[in-house]
Design a binder for these strands. Structure first.
Length: 878
RNA sequence: GCCGAUGUGGCGAAAUGGCAGACGCAACGGACUUAAAAUCCGUUGGGCCUAACGGCCCGUGCCGGUUCGAGUCCGGCCAUCGGCACCA
């Protein structure tokens, strides 16, 4: 039973072809200036999200996206593109470090072993990666440039006039450190005691660490931050032009969280000082009858009166002790303390009490809000809890002023002398003008996005190329890169928040007076720019060579050349003349990575960070285009056979190698694509793999037969013969469908069509060799091994990977007769065959004459006739 | 709570507003075989009428609308999944 007979000898031919591809460097893409580079070809950059090489190895989810990109890569090569299709390893990260802590084995060793395992698996699937471009984020030759890019960021500031990053040398202020894009700040951070490190906001989910699910607490610490907030506007705006799923754009937009409003000054009573609040509803300012500061607000100490001091201090302590989890979990009940001071509402000069409450966050806006209980849910809740007045200032459509309380949408201003009677949008406008004239307020746009907390207290990451001297930081010289981490025996976190690198006393010591930074960069650092390094992975002088960057990441704006090169190249099996395949976004390259496929889990983190780095490097003049990833597609998750997420816990994990062992790599690839639409979530089915495997076996037996000795040889049915009309037609229909479907990434239906093709030829007495060759090229991107072997068996010229994609001839697809559907009142009554060129009158006459139609009409009168040429006739009767 | 995606046979799924269920899985029947596997041929959404040929009705989460015609477009709901969540 174990020795089950293979449906075709994939176990021999798959390793054979993989060895040939390796040996001939079949998928190596030369760079401009290198031997064999053809400048006449347009480029296509198709990228996978490179994996973290975990100990568990690849599971069937990884190769889903990888197979899709491999099909596109192979297809594009056949269409005459220079294709960049690389793979590498995002290898810094916690698991290797955790493993090191447990076993004492250096993360480098684990990482190397895991990479070897991943690579073997990927190679076994037959992906056409250019392995000469393989990169590894933990390789000093790679992270040298990660550190170098950090220094570019460190040595830049964001000029808000030009809205661009510029070298720090152009900054005219007196404290450059206060504007650098990389800076140090004592900030409340997400500290995870279990992991012994701080985490980015993005890495904390419901108050727990994304990795491991350990509790996270707030605590102030000195940390490296990247000023991503400077780019909030561009990161949001420049999303528009990208060919990304709308859902992902929305997720990023929500994360960036732009809101347009006003900053308003509230004078503090009996003090020559004021507090700024940010609001999006300045039209409701007449309803502001109290003010709330975040408990951490710097003015709290000064403002709190003697008698309120003890209460305020106690409250602030309580809040500080709360973990994020508690702060959100207990959010149902509002808390707060009056601090004894008053502010003056600028529109009516009313004295309003100042409170502190933890529902106001220090990190957003100004850390102070005007409390408008009438028209803000949170303020209303707070006011009710503490018995503050609730005044309606916006009347909702169709409601009384009283009923309008708690109504948050637009309405008409009331109880607001300056703007009474104005609908919300003009009320906002007028109020803002009024405030601006008096210097009390100004328009303001705020973003939810926070600066990126960029340091980690870990061992297995890039050390910062920074030294400290007399409390000041400065950059290492470029010539001192890469800065390698010290050799450590003990990787354990110190538990105090001090990074493990602090244990390497010799390493830390930079000079008599200077010490090294001991934090490391987060795992995201390496993946922020790997797609750039792929363009020129062995360059030791530059993070990416200029020419290589311009070619692979630049725009291919030579439209004429693209059209010409994309114009159908003839395959020998094809009949002259062919017609356009509709344009799709896979055609012309607007620049950057032309197609990027990966999981949704990276929708905000990786994709936002990478875009940020890219923009900084673009501003500094290193890159051709402001956006890295022109087109993004998310593949859906593959579930276990039981419809649950694959996990050890359910025992439903599928190992690709096990599948390949039984059915072969080609069947594995085809099945992954045949399961359903790429973007969709779908369950695995071994039976499904078997079905696809049967299809490939039928392809094989279409051309091969087994002789007496049990050896496969070319079938005698395969002849250099003229295809029949029907064969001709199905061949061209298949070219058309497969081509369009690949362009649309609809691989499942492309495979269906190829199955239809094979079914049509099954049992044919004569199998025309030309039709077979055409078909093999179509199937090649999906099933590269079997098609390479059959191509050779057919004694075809050259390698299949060097062929041109076949063209189809539309005229061969046109029938001279068509089936016409006859409907009565929209219901199908019969189907008849009519000549293609039948006129509307002829079709109508045929319909009226049809017996079934007449039965259905009965004694009714025909009121209307709808004729759709070549399709149907609908008689409307009553 | 807010935002988004999805909902079609026993299952995975197809269908530029025009024949719902292509293709595949599973199931059933047949051929080949001593037998099985493999392979090939056929049937297969549900219900009803007919001895049969054949015919009729219903059917794309639910309710309504637009249209000669709706899985597809519009409005309202329900369910499942995913994201965000005191962001002023």
């Amino acid at each position: 039973m174990n020795e089950r007979r293979k449906p075709y000898p994939f176990d021999r031919l798959e390793p054979k072809w993989q060895a040939i591809w390796d040996g001939t460097r079949a998928f190596h893409a030369p760079n401009p200036g290198e031997p064999n580079f053809d400048p006449g070809k347009p480029k296509f950059y198709v990228l996978d999200m490179f994996p973290y090489p975990s100990g568990a190895g690849l599971h069937v989810g990884h190769p889903e996206g990888y197979t899709a990109t491999d099909i596109i890569a192979r297809y594009k090569r056949l269409r005459g593109f220079n294709v960049l299709h690389p793979m590498g390893w995002d290898a810094f990260g916690l698991p290797a470090e955790q493993y090191a802590i447990k076993t004492g084995q250096h993360p480098e060793i684990t990482t190397r072993a895991n990479i070897a395992k991943f690579k073997t698996q990927l190679k076994r699937i037959g992906f056409s990666y250019d392995w000469e471009r393989e990169i590894n984020t933990t390789d000093p030759a790679y992270y040298k440039w990660t550190q170098w890019i950090f220094l570019q960021i460190y040595n830049s500031w964001f000029n808000s006039e030009t809205k661009k990053a510029e070298p720090i040398s152009t900054y005219r202020g007196d404290d450059p450190d206060s504007v650098r894009l990389a800076y140090v700040a004592e900030v409340p951070v997400n500290w995870c005691p279990e992991l012994g490190t701080v985490l980015a906001n993005e890495e904390v989910i419901d108050g727990k660490s994304e990795v491991g699910g350990f509790p996270v607490v707030r605590r102030p610490m000195r940390q490296w931050m990247l000023r991503i907030t400077a780019y909030a506007e561009r990161l949001a705006d420049e999303l528009e032009a990208l060919d990304w799923p709308e859902g992902i754009k929305l997720l990023q937009r929500n994360w960036i969280g732009r809101s347009e409003g006003a900053e308003i000054e509230f004078k503090i009573d009996e003090r020559n000082d004021s507090i700024r609040v940010f609001t999006t509803r300045h039209d409701t300012i007449y309803g502001a009858n109290y003010m709330v500061l975040a408990p951490e607000h710097p003015l709290v100490d000064q403002l709190t009166t003697e008698d309120r001091h003890a209460d305020a201090a106690k409250y602030r302590e309580q809040v500080a002790a709360k973990s994020d989890l508690e702060r959100t979990d207990l959010a149902k009940e509002k808390t707060g303390v009056f601090i004894g001071a008053y502010a003056i509402n600028p529109v009516n000069q009313e004295k309003i009490p100042i409170w502190i409450a933890d529902y106001v966050l220090m990190g957003y806006g100004t850390g102070a809000v005007m409390g408008v209980p009438g028209h803000d849910e949170r303020d209303l809740e707070f006011a009710r809890k503490f018995n503050l007045a609730v005044l309606p200032v916006v009347q909702a459509p169709g409601k009384t002023p009283e009923e309008s309380i708690g109504f948050l949408e637009d309405g008409v201003a009331i109880n607001s002398p300056i703007i009474d009677g104005l609908p919300t949008p003009s009320a906002k406008k007028k109020m803002l003008e009024w405030l601006e004239e008096r210097g009390l307020g100004r328009p303001n746009i705020r973003y939810k996005l926070r600066d990126w907390l960029f340091s980690r207290q870990r061992y297995w990451g890039e050390p910062f190329p920074i030294v400290w001297e007399g409390g000041k930081h400065s950059a290492l010289n470029e010539s001192e890169l890469p800065l390698e981490p010290p050799a450590l025996e003990d990787f354990k976190p110190t538990g105090t928040g001090e990074p493990p690198l602090a244990k390497a006393k010799d390493w830390i010591r930079y000079s008599e007076t200077a010490t090294r930074e001991t934090n490391t960069m987060p795992q995201w650092a390496g993946s922020c720019w790997y797609y750039l390094r792929f363009c020129d992975p062995r360059n030791s002088d530059r993070f990416v060579g200029e020419a290589a960057e311009r070619y692979w990441m630049g725009a291919d704006n030579d439209e004429a050349r693209i059209t010409k090169d994309e114009g159908m190249t003839k395959h020998e099996a094809d009949v002259p003349s062919s017609f356009g395949i509709r344009h799709s976004s896979l055609r012309a390259s607007p620049g950057g990575v032309d197609l990027y496929i990966g999981g949704v889990e990276h929708a905000v983190l990786h994709l936002l960070y990478a875009r940020f780095w890219h923009k900084v490097l673009f501003d500094l003049g290193y890159l051709s285009k402001p956006e890295p990833f022109q087109r993004l597609v998310n593949q859906g998750m593959i579930l276990g056979e039981d419809n649950r997420k694959m996990s050890k816990r359910w025992g439903n994990v599928i190992d690709p190698l096990d599948v390949i062992e039984i059915y072969g790599a080609d069947a594995f690839r085809c099945y992954e694509m045949f399961m359903g639409p790429l973007e969709q979530m779908k369950p695995w089915s071994m039976k499904g793999v078997e079905g696809v495997s049967r299809f490939l076996a039928r392809v094989w037996r279409l051309m091969m037969t087994e002789n007496q000795a049990g050896e496969w040889e070319l079938s005698t049915a395969v002849q250099d013969a003229e295809p029949t009309k029907a064969q001709q037609k199905i061949t061209h229909a298949t070219i058309k469908k497969v081509t369009n479907d690949i362009e649309a990434l609809a691989f499942n239906t492309a495979i269906s069509q190829m199955m239809i093709f094979v079914n049509a030829f099954t049992n044919a007495e004569l199998v025309p060799v030309a039709a077979m060759r055409t078909f093999l090229v179509l199937l090649n991107p999906f099933a590269p091994h079997i098609t390479s072997e059959l191509w050779q068996q057919l004694r075809s010229r050259g390698e299949i990977t060097e062929q041109s994609w076949p063209a189809y001839n539309e005229t061969l697809l046109v029938e001279d007769e068509v089936e016409i559907v006859l409907q009565v009142n929209g219901k199908v009554r019969d189907r008849i065959t009519m000549p293609l060129d039948s006129t509307g009158e002829q079709l109508e006459a045929a319909a009226r004459a049809n017996e079934k139609v007449r039965n259905a009409v009965g004694s009714q009168t025909i009121r209307k006739v709808v004729v759709v040429p070549k399709k149907l006739v609908n008689l409307v009767a009553a």
